[in-house]
Simulated assay, not measured.
Amino acid sequence: MTTPTVARGLLGRVVKDLENRILEGSWRERTRLPSERALAESHGVSRATVREAIQRLVARGLLETRRGSGVFVVGAQPARASAPWLQLIAQSAPMRSDTLEFRLIFECASARFAAERASADELAEMADILERMKKAVHARKVDEEAATDAAFHAALARASHNIMLDHFHASVITLLREHIISNTYDAARDSANARQRALARLAQHQRVFDAVRARQPQAAFEAMREHLDFVGRQFPGDG
């Protein structure tokens, strides 16, 4: 007979395992979880224990149940009211230079960790994004270039496998995506230099990816720093 203490221990173990799979990226957002039966068998516990573990993670906002469809990982959520500084950013957009300074800290760290931790699937995702970016640049499709640029940086943050970086990125993803896309469009307005700059940005993203793929953390860090420095130099004197 299972004692209450043992039951609590089993429940805690299942909750922790499911939580880790979500936070570490084994299960991406909007992924459908295996059935209760499959989870119970893999953890060596009852379906009731699995059901309670899921309910606890639903209550914490990590999972959601969809009637008739199953249980799914919740997608990235916007910043909550408990983060007033994020609300301030939303209400008063920061200067481009301030955002670039923030990105130097955040994205250089993401690149370094991604070089150490990116999975084969994540490397394949980044390679695919870069291929689409290359086609967009050569076809002079600024909208597609902007979209793939933002997608590359988001993929890099996920590949860092740092829970704090990933969650922080999710909280400011809208701001960063708009910043990256705006930079691409604004740089394209300088018709005399737009083509050359687009090719330079493409090469810079490729260098970041090459360093990540080669498992060279410092090279990835430096490649990202050089890319962000270049982005800043496109807009001299722009606050």
Rank of each mutant, 00 (worst) to 15 (best):
M1L: 09
M1G: 12
M1R: 09
T5F: 15
V6A: 12
V6S: 14
L10A: 06
L18Q: 02
L18A: 10
E24I: 15
E24S: 11
W27D: 00
L33I: 05
S35E: 05
S35Q: 00
E36F: 10
V45N: 00
V50N: 04
R51E: 05
Q55A: 11
Q55H: 13
L57D: 00
G61V: 06
R67I: 09
F72S: 01
V74T: 14
G75C: 04
R80E: 12
W85S: 10
Q87D: 15
L88V: 11
A90F: 11
A90W: 14
S92M: 07
S97Q: 05
D98I: 07
E101W: 13
F102I: 11
R103E: 14
I105D: 05
F106A: 08
C108E: 01
A109Q: 10
R117S: 00
A120P: 06
E125Q: 06
V137D: 00
V137I: 05
V137G: 06
R140I: 00
K141G: 09
D143E: 13
E144A: 12
A146W: 00
A146N: 03
T148Q: 03
A151P: 03
L156P: 03
L156F: 13
I163C: 02
L165W: 07
F168C: 15
F168V: 13
H169F: 09
H169R: 05
V172K: 02
R177W: 05
N183K: 03
Y185G: 08
A187L: 01
L199W: 15
L202N: 01
L202H: 05
R213N: 08
P217I: 00
A219Y: 00
A219D: 12
H227Q: 07
D229V: 15
F230E: 11
F235D: 02
G237Q: 04
